[in-house]
C-alpha cells in the first residue's frame, strides 16, 4: 500500500496542512487558463523570507519544493474534482542560480489529466529579479476518492496563508525539528503541524527533509531533486539517509541517493536523488 491508498482512509480536515502554507507564506489563487484550456491553473505568491534562506543566502530547495508541492498539488486537486482529490506521488525539480529577492511567483498548470493521475508543471519565478526562472519542476499526483468525499471549495479558489507567524520564525531545519544523527543522516519528529489534509506528513516537509539531508551530507546547496513518495509517514520519527551515487562528484555538484524512512512504522517511505552543489 502506498501513500495514495493509505490516504483513502480519510480526509479528516482540510485545514490540517494550512500550517505548512502559513510557514512558507504562500497565497494561492485559481486563475483562468489560456483560451480553450479547460484545466485549472493556480498561481501562488510567497515572499523570499529570510527564515527560508539557507547558508548560501538563497531560499532553500526544501522551501521551494514545498511551494511547488502546495501550488502544484492544489492545481492537480482542482483538476481531479468533482470525482476526487489528489496525493503527490512524485516530484522533480531543478533550482537555478538566482539571487532571490522576491516575491516568488509559483505557476502551476495541468500537463496531463487522467482518471488515475494528474501531472502538473510548476515554475517558480522571482518577480523581484525580472521574473527570472528559479525552479523548473513537475509534480505527479494520484487521484483518490476520500471516504468523506473530496473537499468542497468556492470557485475560483483563493487561499490566504493566514496571519504572519510570530517572530522569531524558525529556520526550515528548526521548523522540521531536524537533527543530524551522523555524517549522512538526519531525523525529525512527525509534528501535527507538519501533516497535510490527509493526515500524513506533508510532501513539502518530506522534500525539505531530503534537502536538509543532502546538504548535511555534502555541506553543499541542494539544486536538483527527484523524489518518489512510496508510502505515507504516519508515525515518526522520520529519518533521511544520503549516500553519494558512485563517484558522486560532477561539475554541478554531488549526486546523492536519499532514502526516507518512517522509523516508527519501520518502512521506507520515499526515495530521492538529490544533487548538491558544493
Amino acid at each position: 500500500m502506498n501513500s495514495a491508498e493509505e490516504a483513502l482512509r480519510g480526509f479528516p480536515n482540510r485545514e490540517t496542512g494550512r500550517d505548512v502554507s502559513r510557514y512558507i507564506g504562500v497565497e494561492l489563487h485559481e486563475v483562468e487558463g489560456a483560451p480553450g484550456e479547460s484545466s485549472p491553473r493556480v498561481v501562488g505568491h510567497a515572499p523570499a523570507s529570510d527564515y527560508l534562506r539557507g547558508p548560501s543566502g538563497g531560499v532553500r530547495a526544501g522551501a521551494l519544493l514545498t511551494m511547488l508541492d502546495s501550488v502544484g498539488g492544489l492545481c492537480g486537486g482542482l483538476a481531479a474534482l468533482p470525482e476526487g482529490w489528489v496525493v503527490s506521488t512524485n516530484v522533480s525539480a531543478r533550482s537555478l542560480p538566482v539571487n532571490h529577492v522576491g516575491p516568488l511567483r509559483v505557476d502551476a498548470w495541468v500537463l496531463r489529466q487522467g482518471r488515475a493521475s494528474v501531472v502538473t508543471a510548476v515554475t517558480i519565478r522571482d518577480e523581484g529579479q525580472g521574473n527570472a526562472l528559479v525552479v523548473d519542476g513537475v509534480l505527479t499526483s494520484a487521484v483518490l476518492v476520500p471516504e468523506n468525499g473530496p473537499p468542497q471549495w468556492t470557485r475560483p479558489l483563493s487561499l490566504s496563508p493566514g496571519p504572519p507567524l510570530p517572530a522569531p520564525v524558525p529556520t526550515l531545519t528548526e521548523w522540521l525539528g531536524a537533527r543530524p544523527l551522523g555524517a549522512d543522516e538526519v531525523e525529525m519528529p512527525l509534528a501535527p503541524s507538519l501533516r497535510n489534509p490527509w493526515g500524513i506528513l506533508h510532501g513539502g516537509a518530506v522534500a525539505s527533509l531530503v534537502d536538509v539531508a543532502a546538504e548535511h551530507a555534502t555541506g553543499g546547496v541542494t539544486t536538483d531533486v527527484v523524489l518518489h513518495f512510496l508510502a505515507p509517514n504516519r508515525v515518526g520519527p522520520v529519518r533521511a539517509s544520503a549516500v553519494p551515487i558512485g563517484a558522486g562528484r560532477r561539475a554541478d555538484g554531488t549526486v546523492m541517493r536519499v532514502e526516507v524512512r518512517d522509523v516508527g512504522a519501520d518502512r521506507v517511505t520515499a526515495l530521492a536523488i538529490a544533487t548538491a552543489q558544493v
Binding site: M1, E5, H228, L230, L271
Partner: peptide, 12 residues
C-alpha cells in the same frame, strides 16, 4: 521494485 501499490509501481 521499490514499490508496487494499487495505483503505481516504482522501479529503481
Amino acid at each position: 521494485v521499490a514499490h508496487a501499490g494499487r495505483t503505481t509501481v516504482v522501479i529503481e
